[in-house]
Design a protein around this nucleic acid. Structure first.
Lengths: 228, 228, 228, 228
DNA sequence: TATGAATGAGTTTTCATTCAT
DNA sequence: TATGAATGAAAACTCATTCAT
């Protein structure tokens, strides 16, 4: 009780310790992610990334082979963040419930990591992604298609190409994530339900039958620019 | 014998070759559009644009202030191409009919101008657009929202923000245009109807009532991975 | 007679004409050659090359793909300069006469192009040369070996590997060219004959029999540091 | 029991592992020498040197002021290795015998230390050597010239500049050392005698008189391309 | 004494733009 | 109006060296 414990050497110490490589790497990732998603990859320079991370330019290259490599590592981390919810979706539920569960989980991710949404769902960086990233992206997408295919097998999804319905659903969910990332909507915003319903109505057979779940937390029509 | 008559300045005159400023400008626009949409703006160099247009590097700058200016001019031309169909949509029809008419017109545009689809609907070049382009884009979008708002006033569109339904509809139509631009679908492809229906089911109230239009040109379910 | 002729557009006009690409290229070659041979390849920076050539940095890259490419072009030009004398050596003469003729021609080259000697005969840039350069170098060397081989077939050259005698002869002639390049000796310096004789004595059978040609232009022993 | 005896500071002590500063220094020298001579000075990075020596990057700077300093220390050690044989050459012998003795000693050195040959005899690093190294090199060279000068005084060496004959002899001996360093020849290879004879024929007066020493270990003429 | 993460000046290279012709 | 050689600011990346631990 009389003595102070020696300073912890734990790498994850919250104190910004200049000589903790992992911390430096994290700062670089965060900095690059923010800049890439706000300005675009090409308009972001390596000195900018370094400056925002509070390190020297050369430090980037102790942690990443190249600017492109840095982008790819961030991209794959982003995909991993979203892919988890798909893989962990309980196969016992129906297709609609599973998709809604996944979307809900994604909303939490988006609220916590706005930038990563812009990277994974919005940006078109196809030409900048390496093989590993393309594989990760393809696997993620395949998991979603598998889920929709099973829904289709169960008669829950309308006739049409699974590939196309995956596009449709991902596009519409992406729309909501984008709004959350932009802080236009919180994950509880009523409009989310509208789009969510819409996504299912677009692809599911049972949609119209189920009445839109009444949401207690928001007015039925919060749209600002709408004259109606 | 002493002098050649000066070449006619009619732009479409077959005699005027190469030295017609308008023709040069057109060649530059076409060249830049193709390169921007296939390789991206940043990966396209001005010498490349000039070479593909068959002119010297400096010539670009007799017609456009800068590479960015060139992009913006092309972008606005693209928006104009799509905006026409919205403005000309007959106000006497119902909302659904109008939207389907617009989408059909856009499909024709997309089939004829694949590159411009990629520029206007797909690419994210927000940071490269100037005020004029942003205004054009906003006006285009406002026209679509107005149409949806009127549909909502008529009870044809589900409750929800007009702004959001515009997003939803544009996103899904954009999906089909992209496929057309990529030559994955012709403008008559059956799947188009699926997505089109889906778009309306997502935003319209009457959607479920109307049975999916049977399409004679394609099997009811072309999805490869689904056995059901 | 009353009028001045219009300025000649001949590319080789002695007037430094800034917009003559060939002249610019020549200035770059000369500049790079001088810097590479005086400071070494790695210690020479591209801004230095440009500055000494009186052009901007970027201009280098309008004429050469890279700094390494520039080096290789210069190297091959250098090899060409020396290879000519070997190929043009009259096959009717004896081996010794031919070698001496070649060496004499090379001396003229060295007197006119001191820097190129240092590049071709002295520097070891093996690792910087591309395939084309290595081929050129090998061909040059093969021509010399062929000549020596024919001398050997005629019984003029001592037993031993042709490859080794080529090394020996080239090394010793290179020694004299270096002195000429360094302006230590003129191409007529008496010591040249000493080394030349020595080279032949080293590799030829008849050497000792022929008395050293008396040279009228220099004392028999001009060596400064020698105490004898 | 309370303390371990301090490790013996004898450099060759088998107990002292890794923490003997001299051993670390030796490892660094060896590593740098191998890398410099195989890849060149400029293509070798300090992290590479450290890694091959099995130490951390910063450790180099506990033993050497800089990369250049390291090179110079190695260079001088190399010169020392060869200089010994010159200084220890018995003044009682004739010039030719002394030179041949030195060359023979050098061959042994070269066989044992191939890398150092490439550094001292082959590489051109003039611009990287400091004053001390240049002095060492000059002294070494002066010793050789003194030896040749005495031979000249004794009438054994042909007329000509001592400086030049030193060049000639060193160049040709260097040729043989290079082959030994490259493992193309063993120190007993017959061709060595050919070149050695040639070197003396080039600079000595008596050379031609003495028939080429018959070598029992090799055919009289191993040259492949020559049929004669 | 040894470590190795961090540094930042310096390097090669790119390319939108200019301007003499 | 068109040309295309030249420009030079800015980019990505390297690596010898430092210094907190």
């Amino acid at each position: 009780m009389a003595h102070t414990p020696p300073p912890e050497r734990t790498p994850s110490s919250p104190v910004t310790r200049r000589r903790d490589p992992q911390a430096t790497r994290d700062r670089l990732v965060r900095s690059a992610l923010e800049l890439f998603t706000s300005q675009g990859y090409h308009s972001t320079t390596t000195p900018e990334i370094a400056q925002r991370a509070g390190v020297a330019e050369g430090t980037i290259y102790r942690h990443f082979d190249s600017k492109e490599h840095l982008l790819n590592e961030i991209y794959r981390a982003g995909v991993r963040l979203f892919a988890g919810a798909v893989r962990e979706s309980p196969a016992t539920l129906g297709c609609r419930e599973r998709l809604e569960g996944i979307a809900a989980a994604w909303r939490e991710v988006a609220a916590r990591n706005p930038a990563i949404v812009r990277l994974v769902f919005v940006n078109r960086l196809a030409s900048l992604l390496d093989q590993k990233s393309r594989d990760a992206s393809r696997e993620f997408r395949a998991d979603v298609e598998k889920l929709i295919a099973s829904g289709k097998a169960a008669g829950e999804v309308r006739p049409g190409s699974v590939d196309v319905w995956a596009d449709v659903w991902l596009e519409l969910v992406g729309l909501t994530l984008e709004r959350i990332a932009n802080r236009e909507w919180t994950p509880e915003h009523a409009a989310l339900q509208h789009v969510s319903d819409g996504a299912w109505r677009a692809i599911g057979v049972s949609a119209p039958a189920s009445p839109p779940l009444p949401s207690a937390t928001s007015p039925p029509d919060p749209a600002p620019p709408s004259p109606a």
